[in-house]
Design a protein around this nucleic acid. Sequence first.
DNA 1: CATGAATGAGGTTTCATTCAT
DNA 2: GATGAATGAAACCTCATTCAT
Lengths: 215, 215, 215, 215
Amino acid sequence: MSRAKVIPPEPRSRDADRSQQTILLAARDEFARYGLAGARVDRIAELADVNKRLIYYYFKSKDTLFLAVLEAAYADIRAAEKALHLDEIDPVEAVRQLLSFTWNYYLEHPEFMSLLNSENQHNAAHLKQSVRIQEMNSPLIQMLDMVLLRGREKKLFRNGIDPMQLYISIAAICYFYLSNNQTLSTIFGRDLRAPKAMQQRLSHMTEMVLGYVMH
Amino acid sequence: MSRAKVIPPEPRSRDADRSQQTILLAARDEFARYGLAGARVDRIAELADVNKRLIYYYFKSKDTLFLAVLEAAYADIRAAEKALHLDEIDPVEAVRQLLSFTWNYYLEHPEFMSLLNSENQHNAAHLKQSVRIQEMNSPLIQMLDMVLLRGREKKLFRNGIDPMQLYISIAAICYFYLSNNQTLSTIFGRDLRAPKAMQQRLSHMTEMVLGYVMH
Amino acid sequence: MSRAKVIPPEPRSRDADRSQQTILLAARDEFARYGLAGARVDRIAELADVNKRLIYYYFKSKDTLFLAVLEAAYADIRAAEKALHLDEIDPVEAVRQLLSFTWNYYLEHPEFMSLLNSENQHNAAHLKQSVRIQEMNSPLIQMLDMVLLRGREKKLFRNGIDPMQLYISIAAICYFYLSNNQTLSTIFGRDLRAPKAMQQRLSHMTEMVLGYVMH
Amino acid sequence: MSRAKVIPPEPRSRDADRSQQTILLAARDEFARYGLAGARVDRIAELADVNKRLIYYYFKSKDTLFLAVLEAAYADIRAAEKALHLDEIDPVEAVRQLLSFTWNYYLEHPEFMSLLNSENQHNAAHLKQSVRIQEMNSPLIQMLDMVLLRGREKKLFRNGIDPMQLYISIAAICYFYLSNNQTLSTIFGRDLRAPKAMQQRLSHMTEMVLGYVMH
DNA sequence: CATGAATGAGGTTTCATTCAT
DNA sequence: GATGAATGAAACCTCATTCAT
């Protein structure tokens, strides 16, 4: 009679970095999906296939874990931003690229928006504690400033545009459409995530931003 | 021996309505502050100064209560929107008013933004169940359509503006700035709620929207 | 066909006072037996035959519960002390009675000693928070003062005895013998709780106290 | 191929002993401060600045470690007791010295009292297992017996004093005052650790013991 | 000799909800 | 219509201990 072997659970890899990374990723997804309050440490452990205790071993508490996730998320977006070299291209094209970069980044990183929503709900309490994040300055404002300057010199752009305000507005029109997509779709009775709708949105945003900036 | 009641029975709906209303307001604040998952029924009861059991008596569950709050919030904003009569004024002024209305409404009703954030986190699950909300059509899209038409006829506005997209963008630039104010302030190292910053924001938004729309 | 009734668990009595009292007694025993840190809320619930949640409903936390137990314990001993009327009897007899009262009280209330031990281990942190306990002044010091005065007047007692010091010493010789009985018994290789040993102890203490006081 | 070790094996006991000693001291402080149940192995490791695993390597478990601490504590006090030579001095002075020795030992070794409290809470379970401790007979009882005998011969001391009872009472009045100092201070609303209070206590105890013994 | 990584069991506490009046 | 009492499930977190090197 053959007896099925009871397979002993693979002992964990004993790779500290890997474990931490796995936890971080699982936590990111969980926090993004359910918010800070709604997230469950148990679920994170399950997702990461890790003993729950290990989460507390590496990250002291749920809140500290959330902060670590936030820090990683900011590090990621800052890295992506650095790869943009708006200062080397035509001003009009630069603005266009900034917009499409923002749009695509949010599209590919919906968790970033969710995390920000959670953090704002908590009045940025975690962020305020993190020197690390506060020191990760976005290079975009400076880049954008240069772009606006060059555009004005070329008589393409209008005067007196504040780069931070423009940056925020670009973020806003992308973020809001995506983050609030479900309620908007329901209210308007249309699927605003449908490919066509997405395309229309991008066109509209491009027109709007360029229509404002250029003159 | 039967004793006649001296006091005639209050039309019972009075107190009931009042209790329900109080609960609704307390719940709104709680949900807005902590999100759906973070909100506590106990706290709502305390805030409303009613017995916790009463909440379940009137509103079946936490989720149903949340939906009721959402419905009330939408009812409120729809009512406010209806009071705008953009069709009766000059198109440029109408756009300006739409913007300032949106800005001020969010400013005065931060709970509305929070509730929407929560609801979006839950993929609009409650909203999708509510026929009531879905039937409360915003009059703004139609109004805006008219406004854009008149503006175009007067050769003031550009061609081919989708009123829904514009409406969404206007909401976006207001909403995002206010809803994400805390993280933005921290990241930029500035107090973006300071009166001056708020004023600058409004100017920027006006310029942006009009700069886009007019041509 | 007769079907055995599955007897539903008796619904709890819905008597708030009774529930609280039961919890308090169970907690007293548990804390006395295992100390604050060693006590288990689960065990208290089981002992009291009460849902664990109810403990938190009435007593906010384990620490608050401990304080409540302490308060009750002090209230009990103060009540017992008040029943002593040392001022009405012969001074020598009064001292004798104080001693035997102390001895018997500790004997019958070993939990009181345990609780005090725990509390002292925590630097009286709970006690210091309790106005209630601090206001429960022991009547014994004043009574003892009177007794000493009368004894001196009768040329029976020596001069200059501080009632508080005497009170503490009487408590000490009773308390220490009982509280540390197990280690003492082990070290001395004798059963110091045996009736005969107990009797000898009481004799010794009486001799000691009277031998000191009288002169 | 066997390679000859160049370095002669360090007398391994050196470091090992040192580590063990460090752990023991850290454990003593931790147990004294928090009791057996309240003590944390992690904290001991941190205090001793050794890896937690090492604690288990040297001392099998938390309980065994506690026993080791107890044994060391008893060894210490026995050593100190042996240094007293009550048999060589005047009986009155000998009693006086026994008292002041006890008082000072507890004063300088508060951890000893705490450890005893913990052990008594556990019904001397550890002590009972330790042959070592049980064999460490205190020399004091015998010494005291001699002292009492000589005192009686000199017509200084009263008859029929049981040395063990006297020893316990002396320990009691010192121990209780110090061990329960915090609750006593709170209850009496006085700082019983203040220098003056301490002095008064010592005077009282001396008077009491000598007042009893001499006659 | 020494250690960082990992864990199962169980600890206190919280939560939405229901019971019984 | 209103309420205090009560609860099962599950939340976060901690603890002594072992594994693998």
